[in-house]
């Protein structure tokens, strides 16, 4: 076939550029609008505030990105968050804060392992993690009798409340996790296997990839990251209650898909998910600063998610 030069290829390059960085452009635009509407937005205090607010969702979205790239979904991250939070509060008086965190991480890993194994065995991921979510919610209520439990360690609380170089500690934790996750996903055999099973599980199997191990490990990562975000979230509040984190999975999924990760699997990037996380964070910050009511905020957020993902999908459809 013959190539048509010039005009066509320039248009194609612009198309490719906006395809690759479209979400970054939208994000930059949003920040610019925010800065113009409310100059206070650019105040360092406000920016660190936004970063602190997004950390919990950011860590959950990092795990969700692994799961969605592998061609699955995890609807239980919100309730894993809550369950781990409750258990950590519960055991902390006996184990101390470090012991509590250890228990929380192990619990998150175990729940993830359970999800992963069942999905590997053929349970639809949607059903398995939805049911797990319902089950864990019940457990959280039983454990706490429906009331909040307070943290018994101020050192623990510092993880969610203190600053290092004027930046909240949890922001460092989030950034560190994103960096590690980016390397794991992009530069390790395991990471490539995650893309492969999401791209085509049969091809992956016939190429010698251990589907079982990959599947389970992905869910363990999601579970452990949910536990880490529970540490930050409950340390910030100094307590945990059984309704905390209920709908966190929806923000995590939203951030992931805004970042361009394909729901069908096989494609996506941690850095782009981070842009999605920041975009959602900046959005609620602007809405708060401009005095939009929380009810209206939901509407705006919903529209933004539809708009961001639809523009991406429509472009793909057009290119094919």
């Amino acid at each position: 076939m013959k190539k048509e030069k010039t005009g066509m290829s320039v248009a194609k390059h612009i198309g490719e550029f906006s395809g690759k960085y479209g979400i970054v452009l939208i994000f930059v635009l949003l920040v610019a609008v925010a800065a113009i509407l409310q100059p206070v937005f650019l105040h360092p205090r406000n920016i660190t505030n936004v970063l602190r607010q997004v950390s919990v969702n950011g860590i959950l979205a990092t795990g969700m990105t692994f799961v969605i790239i592998s061609g699955a979904i995890d609807l239980s991250v919100g309730t894993i968050f809550c369950m781990c939070g409750m258990v950590m509060m519960f055991v902390m008086p006996r184990t101390g804060w470090m012991g509590a965190i250890l228990v929380g991480l192990i619990l998150g890993a175990m729940i993830g392992c359970c999800n992963g194994y069942m999905v590997y065995r053929g349970m639809p991921a949607f059903i398995m993690t939805l049911a797990m979510s319902i089950l864990l919610k019940g457990c959280s209520f039983i454990l706490s009798n429906g009331t909040p439990i307070a943290s018994s360690s101020t050192t623990y609380n510092a993880l969610g409340q203190s600053y290092f170089l004027k930046v909240p500690v949890q922001v460092y934790i989030y950034f560190l996790i994103v960096i590690v996750a980016t390397i794991v996903l992009g530069r390790t055999r395991f990471g490539r296997s995650v893309y492969a099973i999401g791209g085509n599980i049969e091809v992956a199997r016939l190429s010698g990839i251990n589907v079982k191990k990959t599947r389970i490990l992905v869910y363990i990562i999601s579970g452990v990251l949910a536990a880490i975000s529970a540490v930050i979230g409950t340390a910030r509040l100094g307590s945990c209650e059984p309704t905390l984190g209920e709908d966190y999975h929806s923000d995590a999924i939203a951030a992931t898909v805004i970042g361009g990760t394909l729901m069908s699997g096989g494609e996506g990037h941690q850095m782009k998910t981070m842009v999605g996380v920041l975009l959602l964070g900046v959005l609620s910050n602007i809405l708060n600063l401009t005095g939009v009511t929380p009810y209206a905020q939901y509407v705006v957020k919903g529209l933004i998610i539809i708009g961001a993902v639809a523009s991406d999908i429509f472009r793909r459809v057009k290119m094919n």
Partner: peptide
């Protein structure tokens, strides 16, 4: 299509998959 190659992968990623 269904067993040989991950269709959404690049040539590069498919070449080294095994």
């Amino acid at each position: 299509k269904n067993q040989g190659l991950v269709q959404i992968f690049s040539i590069m990623h498919n070449t080294t998959l095994a």
